[in-house]
Computed example of a mutant assay.
Amino acid sequence: MILTIIAAAAENNALGKDNDLVWHLPDDFKRFKTLTSGHFIIMGRKTFESFPKPLPNRTHVIITRQKDYPVPEGCIVVESIEDAIKIAVTSSGVEKPENEEVFIIGGGEIYKQSINIANKIELTRVHTEVEADTFFPEIDGNDWKLIEEEYHPKDEKHQFNFTYLTYIRK
Protein backbone atom coordinates (compact mmCIF):
# COMPACT_ATOMS: atom_id res chain seq x y z
CA MET A 1 0.00 0.00 0.00
CA ILE A 2 1.16 3.52 -0.81
CA LEU A 3 0.39 6.11 1.86
CA THR A 4 0.30 9.49 0.12
CA ILE A 5 0.03 12.92 1.71
CA ILE A 6 -1.73 15.37 -0.59
CA ALA A 7 -1.78 19.09 0.14
CA ALA A 8 -1.52 22.60 -1.26
CA ALA A 9 0.80 24.86 0.73
CA ALA A 10 2.27 28.33 0.25
CA GLU A 11 6.00 28.95 0.23
CA ASN A 12 5.79 29.63 4.00
CA ASN A 13 3.99 26.23 4.32
CA ALA A 14 0.66 27.95 5.03
CA LEU A 15 -2.30 25.63 4.44
CA GLY A 16 -5.30 27.58 5.62
CA LYS A 17 -6.91 29.96 8.04
CA ASP A 18 -10.10 29.59 10.09
CA ASN A 19 -10.63 26.06 8.73
CA ASP A 20 -10.66 27.23 5.13
CA LEU A 21 -8.24 27.39 2.21
CA VAL A 22 -6.67 30.77 1.53
CA TRP A 23 -6.80 30.54 -2.29
CA HIS A 24 -8.96 29.17 -5.07
CA LEU A 25 -7.06 27.05 -7.62
CA PRO A 26 -9.54 25.17 -9.85
CA ASP A 27 -6.82 23.10 -11.57
CA ASP A 28 -5.53 21.96 -8.18
CA PHE A 29 -9.06 20.89 -7.18
CA LYS A 30 -9.31 18.90 -10.44
CA ARG A 31 -5.97 17.22 -9.76
CA PHE A 32 -7.02 16.42 -6.19
CA LYS A 33 -10.25 14.85 -7.46
CA THR A 34 -8.45 12.84 -10.17
CA LEU A 35 -5.82 11.49 -7.76
CA THR A 36 -8.12 10.69 -4.82
CA SER A 37 -11.27 9.40 -6.57
CA GLY A 38 -11.94 5.76 -5.82
CA HIS A 39 -9.59 5.75 -2.83
CA PHE A 40 -9.70 6.06 0.94
CA ILE A 41 -9.07 9.61 2.15
CA ILE A 42 -7.93 10.11 5.75
CA MET A 43 -8.52 13.46 7.44
CA GLY A 44 -9.01 15.18 10.74
CA ARG A 45 -12.47 16.17 11.92
CA LYS A 46 -11.96 19.88 11.20
CA THR A 47 -10.91 19.16 7.62
CA PHE A 48 -13.99 16.99 7.16
CA GLU A 49 -16.21 19.71 8.60
CA SER A 50 -14.78 22.23 6.12
CA PHE A 51 -16.50 20.34 3.26
CA PRO A 52 -20.10 21.20 2.40
CA LYS A 53 -20.75 17.43 2.14
CA PRO A 54 -18.68 14.24 1.79
CA LEU A 55 -16.67 14.13 -1.43
CA PRO A 56 -18.12 11.74 -4.01
CA ASN A 57 -16.49 8.44 -4.96
CA ARG A 58 -14.14 8.31 -1.97
CA THR A 59 -14.26 6.56 1.40
CA HIS A 60 -13.82 9.13 4.16
CA VAL A 61 -11.92 8.12 7.31
CA ILE A 62 -12.31 10.88 9.91
CA ILE A 63 -9.94 11.11 12.88
CA THR A 64 -11.39 12.65 16.04
CA ARG A 65 -11.08 12.30 19.79
CA GLN A 66 -14.77 13.18 20.19
CA LYS A 67 -16.41 10.04 21.61
CA ASP A 68 -19.93 10.67 20.26
CA TYR A 69 -19.03 12.18 16.90
CA PRO A 70 -22.02 11.69 14.58
CA VAL A 71 -20.82 9.46 11.74
CA PRO A 72 -22.14 10.68 8.40
CA GLU A 73 -23.41 7.91 6.14
CA GLY A 74 -20.62 6.23 4.22
CA CYS A 75 -17.90 7.65 6.48
CA ILE A 76 -15.74 5.90 9.08
CA VAL A 77 -14.69 7.56 12.35
CA VAL A 78 -11.54 6.52 14.23
CA GLU A 79 -9.46 7.92 17.10
CA SER A 80 -5.93 7.90 15.63
CA ILE A 81 -3.88 8.01 12.44
CA GLU A 82 -2.81 4.41 13.15
CA ASP A 83 -6.45 3.26 13.33
CA ALA A 84 -7.26 5.18 10.14
CA ILE A 85 -4.44 3.46 8.24
CA LYS A 86 -5.44 0.02 9.58
CA ILE A 87 -9.01 0.53 8.41
CA ALA A 88 -7.93 1.79 5.00
CA VAL A 89 -5.52 -1.11 4.53
CA THR A 90 -7.86 -3.91 5.56
CA SER A 91 -11.31 -2.47 4.82
CA SER A 92 -12.38 -5.32 2.60
CA GLY A 93 -10.96 -7.88 5.02
CA VAL A 94 -8.05 -8.35 2.62
CA GLU A 95 -4.87 -6.32 2.74
CA LYS A 96 -4.58 -3.78 -0.05
CA PRO A 97 -2.20 -4.58 -2.90
CA GLU A 98 1.16 -2.81 -2.86
CA ASN A 99 0.12 -0.33 -5.55
CA GLU A 100 -3.15 0.69 -3.83
CA GLU A 101 -2.97 4.29 -2.71
CA VAL A 102 -4.50 5.76 0.46
CA PHE A 103 -4.49 9.56 0.77
CA ILE A 104 -3.97 11.74 3.82
CA ILE A 105 -5.72 15.02 3.03
CA GLY A 106 -5.22 17.09 6.18
CA GLY A 107 -5.25 19.11 8.20
CA GLY A 108 -2.04 20.40 9.70
CA GLU A 109 -1.99 18.15 12.76
CA ILE A 110 -2.76 15.01 10.71
CA TYR A 111 0.03 15.93 8.25
CA LYS A 112 2.48 16.29 11.18
CA GLN A 113 1.46 12.86 12.52
CA SER A 114 1.79 11.17 9.13
CA ILE A 115 4.86 12.77 7.49
CA ASN A 116 7.18 10.19 9.07
CA ILE A 117 5.12 7.19 7.95
CA ALA A 118 3.99 8.27 4.47
CA ASN A 119 5.66 6.90 1.31
CA LYS A 120 4.78 9.76 -1.01
CA ILE A 121 3.84 13.46 -0.99
CA GLU A 122 1.77 15.15 -3.69
CA LEU A 123 2.27 18.83 -2.88
CA THR A 124 0.95 21.81 -4.76
CA ARG A 125 3.39 24.58 -3.88
CA VAL A 126 1.54 27.88 -4.19
CA HIS A 127 4.05 30.61 -4.99
CA THR A 128 3.01 33.16 -2.42
CA GLU A 129 3.22 33.68 1.33
CA VAL A 130 -0.02 34.12 3.22
CA GLU A 131 -1.18 34.56 6.77
CA ALA A 132 -2.47 31.28 8.16
CA ASP A 133 -3.20 29.36 11.34
CA THR A 134 -2.48 25.91 9.88
CA PHE A 135 0.82 24.86 8.33
CA PHE A 136 2.32 21.96 6.40
CA PRO A 137 5.37 20.33 8.03
CA GLU A 138 8.82 20.95 6.55
CA ILE A 139 9.85 18.41 3.91
CA ASP A 140 13.27 17.10 4.97
CA GLY A 141 15.51 16.62 1.95
CA ASN A 142 17.30 13.81 3.81
CA ASP A 143 14.06 11.80 3.85
CA TRP A 144 12.37 12.82 0.60
CA LYS A 145 13.37 12.87 -3.06
CA LEU A 146 11.62 15.16 -5.56
CA ILE A 147 10.76 13.01 -8.59
CA GLU A 148 8.38 15.22 -10.55
CA GLU A 149 7.50 18.88 -10.85
CA GLU A 150 5.09 20.73 -13.10
CA TYR A 151 4.85 24.53 -13.05
CA HIS A 152 1.58 26.41 -13.72
CA PRO A 153 1.57 30.18 -14.21
CA LYS A 154 -1.25 32.29 -12.80
CA ASP A 155 -4.06 33.12 -15.21
CA GLU A 156 -7.64 34.42 -15.20
CA LYS A 157 -8.77 31.42 -13.06
CA HIS A 158 -5.70 31.16 -10.81
CA GLN A 159 -4.58 34.09 -8.67
CA PHE A 160 -1.12 32.61 -7.98
CA ASN A 161 1.61 30.69 -9.80
CA PHE A 162 1.88 27.14 -8.47
CA THR A 163 3.90 23.97 -9.00
CA TYR A 164 2.84 20.35 -8.57
CA LEU A 165 5.63 18.52 -6.70
CA THR A 166 5.79 14.77 -6.23
CA TYR A 167 8.14 13.39 -3.57
CA ILE A 168 8.92 9.81 -2.62
CA ARG A 169 10.58 8.60 0.54
CA LYS A 170 14.32 7.93 0.06
Rank of each mutant, 00 (worst) to 15 (best):
S114F: 02
D83S: 14
I121W: 01
A118K: 09
E129N: 13
T124I: 12
I117H: 10
S114T: 13
N99E: 09
E100K: 15
S92N: 13
D133I: 03
K112N: 09
V130C: 11
K120Y: 00
G108W: 01
E131L: 03
P97F: 01
R125A: 04
R125S: 08
S114H: 04
I104Q: 06
E82K: 14
E100P: 09
V89A: 12
I105C: 14
I87W: 07
S91H: 13
N119Q: 15
I105L: 11
T124N: 07
A84N: 06
E129M: 11
G108V: 06
E122Q: 10
E98H: 10
E129Q: 15
K96H: 03
E95C: 07
E95Q: 10
V126N: 05
E98T: 12
E109F: 03
V94Y: 09
A132G: 15
I121E: 00
V94T: 13
I104T: 04
P97H: 10
V130P: 02
K120P: 00
I115Y: 01
D83W: 00
I104Y: 02
A118H: 06
D133H: 09
N119A: 11
I85Y: 02
G107R: 06
I105R: 09
A84Y: 07
Y111K: 05
E100F: 12
I115R: 01
E109S: 15
I85D: 05
G107L: 05
D83G: 09
I115N: 01
D83E: 14
S92K: 12
G93V: 05
V102M: 13
A84G: 13
F103C: 08
A118L: 08
I110L: 12
E109C: 11
T124C: 13
G107Y: 03
T90W: 03
I85S: 08
V126R: 00
